[in-house]
């Protein structure tokens, strides 16, 4: 699969249709985000797989925002999985990226990753490499929903109480781009205190992410204390789906909450 991706990226760069390809590279013994401009470098391209599939994923679409803004004259290729494509769609919706400036190169995630992520669609719509595997349902959410109310409340409070307020969930998020962040607003939370208010700090973020989160799971991976943020945001997906018939990351328009 990776050879197909390399060949397609090479084709794009050599054709002159794009001036740079944002992907991942293996260098210094690590996997790093990298802007390929020379097709020769593509030999070291990596899909974000180290020891297991997708264990070195990065929010590439987030990095592209700043690069594309600084160079509006250029067109960029970008390596995308299903979740990256969902974030692209959301960033287009919010005018953070211009679809005319972006050429996505999509590939499908393998079975084990789809399973681990409980991903609804573990492949991009424009999928050019890899075999598509079927989506999964949110079993983690169902497990928590099955808990008795008080028990579930205690569970979440305990999880949130571990927070060290590193803001990593925000900083890694591909769809966090606000100039004024809710989590830096004194009107919503206590900004200069520690520990963060439980559960307010996380609920402020959760409410803000409603209509925007694309279920990439990078926040949960970046969390130093292991708060199951992905399960929390999957629950929000389920609520947005059932109450507003809006599928975060899949719908083509901005969420209905934007009218509020």
């Amino acid at each position: 699969m990776i050879e197909t991706v390399k060949a397609k990226a090479k084709e794009l760069l050599e054709s002159g249709n794009i001036q740079g390809f944002l992907g991942l590279i293996e260098k210094n013994g690590h996997i790093a985000p990298h802007l390929f401009t020379d097709p020769v470098e593509l030999q070291a391209l990596n899909l974000g797989d180290r020891e297991k599939a997708g264990d070195a994923r990065y929010p590439l679409t987030k990095y592209l925002i700043q690069i594309a803004k600084a160079h509006p004259e250029h067109i960029f290729g970008i390596l995308v999985r299903g979740c990256d494509e969902r974030s692209l769609k959301t960033l287009y919706n919010w005018n953070q990226l211009d679809p005319n400036q972006v050429v996505p190169l999509g590939f499908a995630c393998p079975e084990e990753l789809a399973e681990a992520c409980e991903c609804l669609q573990p492949y991009p719509d424009a999928c050019e490499a890899g075999e598509k595997v079927s989506g999964r349902s949110f079993e983690g959410v169902a497990k928590l929903d099955a808990m008795e109310r008080g028990e579930r409340f205690d569970y979440w409070n305990e999880q949130f109480s571990k927070c060290i307020k590193c803001y990593g969930c925000r900083d890694v998020c591909p769809v966090c781009f606000c100039n004024e962040c809710s989590l830096a607003s004194d009107d919503l939370i206590q900004t200069k205190t520690f520990p963060p208010e439980t559960p307010l700090f996380h609920l402020v973020r959760a409410v803000h992410m409603a209509g925007r989160c694309v279920d990439c799971g990078l926040c949960e991976q970046a969390c130093p204390v292991g708060i199951p943020l992905r399960t929390l945001y999957k629950k929000i997906y389920a609520i947005m789906d059932s109450e507003f018939d809006y599928q975060m990351g899949y719908s083509e328009e901005k969420s209905p909450l934007n009218l509020l």
Binding site: H30, I31, P33, A56, Y63, G168, A222
Partner: peptide, 15 residues
């Protein structure tokens, strides 16, 4: 960008 393949911090950082 926290390095995901670093054995020290595995893609995590403090503030």
């Amino acid at each position: 960008i926290p390095c995901k393949t670093s054995p020290t911090n595995e893609g995590k950082l403090c503030i």
